[in-house]
């Protein structure tokens, strides 16, 4: 279990992440949702160990994050960054194989192949990473971080994804979140920063609504993804239709010129 208690991350005295507490349970997919500048990525980086929180504690499987060596932390948590660029001509497969770094090399080859087939990157394994499209690069990066947590182990693992679907077409967005939700069976807790509210509503077990560094709402999709919460956080008219007959929630943002009109009705 990953537990964060009252974490605070300040830049030049300004709280980017302000007293956030959360809990990630293995077998759950948690989505972080919020407007630009709400501190979503910063929160993810603090949880990952990139930034050090000035206050509060972060506890991975009962042990504080400061007490992990980078190598041991990498064995239980993987992070997919928002953007990754490579300066040197690496091949796709070489990039994915980097995920084996923390595992030691034994048996890695089969693992790499399995993950690459799952993420539909096996077909271009011998191409140069730099020659891929934005969406393909993201899938390769996803494959790399999946390799890191794919193999079973005796302790729960954590996968942190920062906008994993931002450059993908609609089918691949679903495929990536499908893979992420499949991971729940592997004793893995998944945390994803998501922009698309419908994706978050369709795949998440728990949603954290972030505004100005603070948690505004936190809980199950049906509670958090309500029209009044979303409108408050995004300061924009948003319509939510509850899911029925196994259909997920349907969330629609309304055009700006409807704004006054909608608010009048509301």
């Amino acid at each position: 279990m990953l537990e964060a208690r009252n974490i605070q991350y300040l830049v030049q005295g300004r709280a980017i992440v302000n007293k956030v507490s959360l809990q990630l349970n293995p077998g759950e997919l948690t989505a972080i949702v919020g407007p630009n500048g709400a501190g979503k990525s910063s929160l993810l980086k603090v949880l990952a160990g990139d930034y050090k929180a000035q206050a509060g504690e972060i506890i991975y499987n009962g042990k504080a994050i400061e007490n992990y060596r980078p190598k041991d932390l990498a064995k239980i948590r993987a992070v997919m960054p928002q953007h990754s660029q490579l300066t040197f001509p690496f091949k796709v497969k070489e990039v994915v194989e980097l995920g084996l770094l923390s595992l030691g090399m034994a048996g890695g080859e089969q693992l790499v192949k399995e993950v690459m087939i799952e993420t539909q990157t096996w077909a271009f394994r011998d191409r140069l990473y730099g020659a891929l499209s934005g969406g393909e690069k993201q899938r390769v990066q996803l494959a790399r971080v999946l390799v890191q947590v794919w193999a079973g182990s005796d302790q729960p693992k954590f996968l942190l994804l920062d906008e994993p679907t931002s450059s993908m077409d609609i089918a691949h967005q679903h495929q990536v979140l499908h893979i992420a939700s499949q991971l729940k069976r592997k004793d893995i807790a998944v945390l994803a920063v998501l922009h698309d509210l419908n994706m978050a509503a369709a795949y998440a077990d728990q949603v954290i609504l972030l505004k100005e560094g603070k948690v505004y709402q936190q809980g199950a999709v049906a509670e958090v993804m309500a029209s009044q919460h979303l409108e408050h956080v995004f300061e924009h008219p948003i319509l939510v239709r509850n899911g029925y007959d196994g259909m997920p929630h349907f969330i629609q943002s309304l055009p700006v010129h409807h704004q006054s009109h909608t608010f009048k009705i509301a």
């Binding site: 980078p70 990498a74 064995k75 992070v79 960054p81 660029q85 990039v95 980097l98 971080v145």
Partner: peptide, 10 residues
């Protein structure tokens, strides 16, 4: 791939 990515990989 990057400094923070390298840290993530251990």
């Amino acid at each position: 791939i990057g400094e923070s990515e390298a840290f993530h990989m251990g």
